[in-house]
């Protein structure tokens, strides 16, 4: 079982509430989502493992068991081409769960006309494998859901 941590502080709202069907319909996979606090802050690793992909707006950490978790910071934020995001780690780094990966400002994303809602997805997981999902207020690094 993998415990997946909240990458950002805010309100856990569930994946279905994400204003992008790619995530809300779990097309990428099951998971959860967080409406982040509107203040600059660090997005952290949701699990321990290796950062196999690091974009400014999204990253994937793969654990030793091969399970990968995607963190996507905001909706359509690929269009920002990294502006407003600062990388705190390097692709290929080994990280502990809760270790900072990206510094960003959800308020700035929102001011630019995009949703800052953060999706956290268990990649290649079956729908029933995600459970124990937390709802409501969470801090960065708090438990978000279990991947059985």
């Amino acid at each position: 079982m993998t415990t997946v941590l909240a990458p950002v502080a805010g309100t856990a709202i569930g994946l279905a509430a994400v204003p992008d069907p790619v995530f809300s319909q779990a097309m990428v996979g099951p998971g959860s989502a967080i409406d982040p606090q509107r203040e600059p802050g660090q997005a952290v690793a949701p699990i321990s493992g290796t950062i196999v992909k690091l974009h400014a707006h999204a990253y994937i950490v793969v654990g030793e068991d091969g399970r990968g978790v995607l963190v996507h910071l905001g909706i359509d934020t690929v269009q920002l081409k990294g502006e407003g995001f600062r990388l705190l780690a390097v692709e290929g780094d080994r990280v502990r769960a809760g270790q900072p990966v990206v510094f960003w400002d959800p308020a700035a994303v929102e001011a630019g006309g995009r949703s800052p809602i953060c999706s956290v997805v268990a990649l290649d997981a079956a729908a029933g494998e995600v459970n124990g999902e937390v709802r409501g207020g969470v801090g960065a690094g708090d438990e978000l859901f279990e991947w059985s």
Binding site: V28, G29, V52, K53, I60, V62, G68, L70, L123, D124
Partner: peptide, 8 residues
């Protein structure tokens, strides 16, 4: 068939 592999 792996979204992890394709995204990576």
């Amino acid at each position: 068939k792996s979204i992890l592999s394709v995204l990576a």
